[in-house]
């Protein structure tokens, strides 16, 4: 197991490095110059442009810039934003927490609701209800989350006035303590709903199909023949076997949550990574963009390893013992 883990971690690091190279090439290949965008159009001072270009090393060959970046990274330094001069690591940490709060809540809710609905339908395969649920799941699957978000705002905020349109806190109230927690939860309802509703179909379909698949296995037929109660068969044998794919999907989803919720965050002005990434792109803030993409690559790599390890722990059939 430990040799397997070591190998996985090494390939993970390699993947992150390859991603880092690709990110660098893509980010720098996009037309536009951060310093020109920074100094604006009102009488920029040419001396200032030259100084800033030199300061951020943008006058050096790309390969040198990349070498320096990787060198600093190995020392744990992600650099500073060209725009705000703040350390990139601090800026990202500031934004990760609200994103995690939103995305984790939505992911957990979607996994629970989606799986529950999937099981519900799997046990009623072929009925009208199953067919309707299937169609509805495709409907939400094909609905863009930002559109759904805007519709939720129109219905619950603009028309019914029961929930706030956007943001994380009520700007006019000075809530503290528990009142603030409640206020934030109230502001979470719509964005979490928008994310959850678009995530549910994945879990729904996976749970439904894997349950149906396991129900058709020979050992289930054997168990039925022994006269074991249907409830017990389901709980002890079907569910345990059928839940494995859901765990994989959950892990993969977790890795993409930061990017997946970006659009919804922008629609709801949620102070997470979403609008942060967008602004960094339009400004061509190279160090910040490299930092954000690095964090995303690392989170994907880590989640993939975690899922693999978890999988072998949950399913004794999959073993990573060295032979």
């Amino acid at each position: 197991m430990s040799r397997y883990l070591g190998r996985r971690i090494l390939t993970g690091i390699l993947c992150i490095f390859v991603a880092l190279c690709i990110n660098f090439v893509i980010i720098h290949a996009a037309p536009g110059n951060p310093i020109r965008l920074l100094v604006g159009k009102d009488n920029p001072n040419p001396q200032m442009i030259a100084e800033l270009t030199e300061k951020y090393g943008l006058d050096q060959p790309k390969i040198v810039q990349f070498g320096k970046y990787v060198g600093n990274l190995l020392k744990g330094d992600m650099g500073v934003s060209i725009y705000t001069n703040e350390p990139v690591s601090d800026m990202i940490i500031d934004r990760l927490a609200p994103t995690a709060m939103l995305a984790l809540t939505a992911a957990v809710l979607a996994a629970i609701i989606g799986t529950a609905l999937g099981i519900f339908c799997a046990r009623r395969v072929g009925t009208k209800l199953d067919a309707i649920m299937g169609s509805v799941s495709y409907l939400f699957d094909s609905t863009p989350s930002f559109w759904l978000g805007l519709m939720l705002i129109l219905i619950f905020a603009s028309t019914l006035h029961v929930l706030p349109t956007s943001g994380m806190i009520d700007m006019r109230a000075d809530n503290e303590g528990f009142a603030k927690v409640l206020d934030i939860m109230k502001h979470m309802i719509l964005p979490v709903s928008a994310l959850t509703l678009t995530l549910i179909p994945y879990y729904f379909r996976i749970a439904r199909s894997s349950i149906i698949q396991v129900m058709g296995e020979d050992f289930i037929t054997t168990l039925r023949a022994t006269g074991m109660p249907e409830k017990r068969i389901f709980r002890k044998y079907i569910f345990r076997n059928a839940i494995l794919p859901t765990i994989t999907v959950f892990g993969i989803q977790m890795a993409y949550l930061v990017t997946g919720s970006a659009i919804v965050e922008i629609v709801f002005s949620w102070p997470g990574m979403g609008s942060f990434v967008m602004t960094a792109i339009t400004r061509r803030d190279y160090p910040l963009l490299m930092g954000i993409y690095l964090v995303l690559s690392v989170s994907v790599a880590v989640m993939m390893i975690v899922v693999d390890v978890l999988y072998s722990a949950l399913d004794p059939r999959i073993s990573h013992e060295s032979k």
């Binding site: 805007l150 349109t165 956007s166 943001g167 700007m171 629609v267 709801f268 002005s269 979403g274």
Partner: peptide, 20 residues
Amino acid sequence: VVISFIPDSNTAMQSFYNGE
């Protein structure tokens, strides 16, 4: 005076119509 950061203009419009 409070500045509320709203990146999306459609959301800002709804927020404005909603009295926020």
